Simulated scan of single mutants.
Amino acid sequence: MRIRALLLTVIAVVAAGCGGDPTTGKAGLEKSTITLGMLPLPEVAPIQIGIDKGYFEAQGLTVKVEIIQGGAAAMPDLLSGKLDVLHSNYVSAMLAAGLGVAKPKVIGEAYVAQDGNFVLMTKRDSPITTLAHLKGKKVGVNTLNNVATLAVSALLKTAGLAPDDVKFVEQPFPQMAGALDSGLVDAAVLPEPFWQTAAKDSGARQLSELFTAATAKWPMAGYVVTDQFALQHPKTVAAFQRGLQQATTTAISNSADAKAAILKYTKIDKATADLMRLGGYSTSVDKGRLQRVADLMLEFGYLKEKLDVSSLLLTAGTS
């Protein structure tokens, strides 16, 4: 399993040393400049908003951004101290915790899936019109054995199918519509704005919302640090949380600000951004929501034993 192999390599990174320079910065922070690794997705718009509007600066904090390819792949950089904060989907973070190769702490939530944020698509003339028709078919996901495959597995269950009834095919989101058109995959998981583009350019059709029924209002991702960073930099973490909450509140109240921010760190054009629904930004980390992720991971074999998500939180319930 590629994701687990990536996470297991973290052990070697930890042995080489971790943590950053705890030099006291302005406003009495242990670190006044932090590096945050994030995927170029709509869910991290509050980070750009917080930088542009000076919300982090007002807390005495400078946030430098590095674009990453995925939470699991960037976990070694978090543990080595190359990154101070990591934007990661919760499945990757929980896999790391469950395998015992990391002790991530969630210090803020990025996004909770809403209707229209993530969909399962088929090509325009596909004979697949129900989930049951997916039996024996190929389903495109951006990463194997992670949040997309977990969500599709939950969908398949509602149609009486098991994960083994389909073949998951890994394909980056930017290439997913092409894979669907060419027949490389029969159905594809697409987030905003990729599904809107696929529908507009090639007539791709929506087969189902990705997060529905048991996975409705699904917590997608959050901002994590190592337990050591949280222990050594409590004022820095608190400053980041305050800036993030203010930026997230802005994103929730004004989608125009969020869409303008998205244009700065993605290749999305304004016309496509205007089609996006957004709406899933969250100002708090809810323990009950996170436990749903861990429990579904256990049900489908991603975790070998039950994970109490309290271990991922700085305090009980919220960060």
Rank of each mutant, 00 (worst) to 15 (best):
P22D: 07
D21M: 07
I47S: 04
K26I: 07
A15R: 15
P22H: 01
V14T: 13
P40Q: 06
I49N: 01
I51S: 01
V13W: 13
K26V: 06
I11F: 06
G28D: 03
V14L: 10
Q48H: 08
A27Y: 08
T24Q: 08
A45S: 10
K31Q: 15
D21F: 04
T23D: 03
V14G: 11
P40M: 12
L7P: 03
I49P: 00
K31G: 10
A12M: 13
I34D: 02
I51E: 04
V44G: 03
T35R: 13
L41A: 06
L29G: 02
L29D: 00
P46D: 02
E43N: 10
F56S: 00
T23H: 04
T9E: 14
A16E: 15
P22C: 02
V10Y: 10
G28E: 03
L7E: 01
A16M: 14
T9G: 09
M38P: 12
I51A: 02
F56N: 02
F56P: 00
L6N: 07
Y55F: 12
P42N: 00
I51H: 00
Q48E: 09
A12Q: 15
P40T: 10
S32Q: 14
L39D: 12
T35W: 09
A45Y: 04
T35V: 15
G25C: 01
A15I: 12
A45I: 03
A27P: 02
G25V: 00
E43S: 14
K31S: 14
V14H: 02
V13Q: 10
G50V: 01
P22Q: 07
L29T: 00
V13Y: 12
V10G: 07
T9D: 14
G25H: 01
L39S: 12
V14A: 13
G20H: 07
G25D: 01
L36F: 15
L41R: 03
L36E: 09
G17N: 09
L36W: 15
A15V: 12
M38N: 15
C18I: 06
I34V: 13
P46W: 02
K26D: 04
A15S: 13
G17C: 07
G17L: 10
G50K: 02
P40V: 12
T9V: 00
K26T: 07
E43Y: 12
T9M: 10
T9L: 08
A27M: 12
I49E: 01
P22A: 03
T33V: 14
I34W: 06
A27V: 06
S32T: 10
L7I: 09
I11Q: 15
P42Y: 00
K26Q: 05
I49M: 03
Q48Y: 08
L39K: 02
L41I: 15
Y55A: 05
G28I: 03
I51V: 09
C18V: 11
K31A: 12
V14M: 00
Y55C: 04
T24P: 05
P40D: 07
T33G: 06
I11T: 15
T23V: 07
G20W: 04
S32P: 11
L8T: 11
L8S: 06
L8M: 11
I11Y: 09
I47F: 03
V14E: 14
T33L: 10
A12N: 14
G37C: 09
L36Q: 08
I34T: 08
A27N: 13
Y55D: 07
I34M: 07
S32W: 06
A12Y: 10
A16G: 15
D21A: 08
K26L: 03
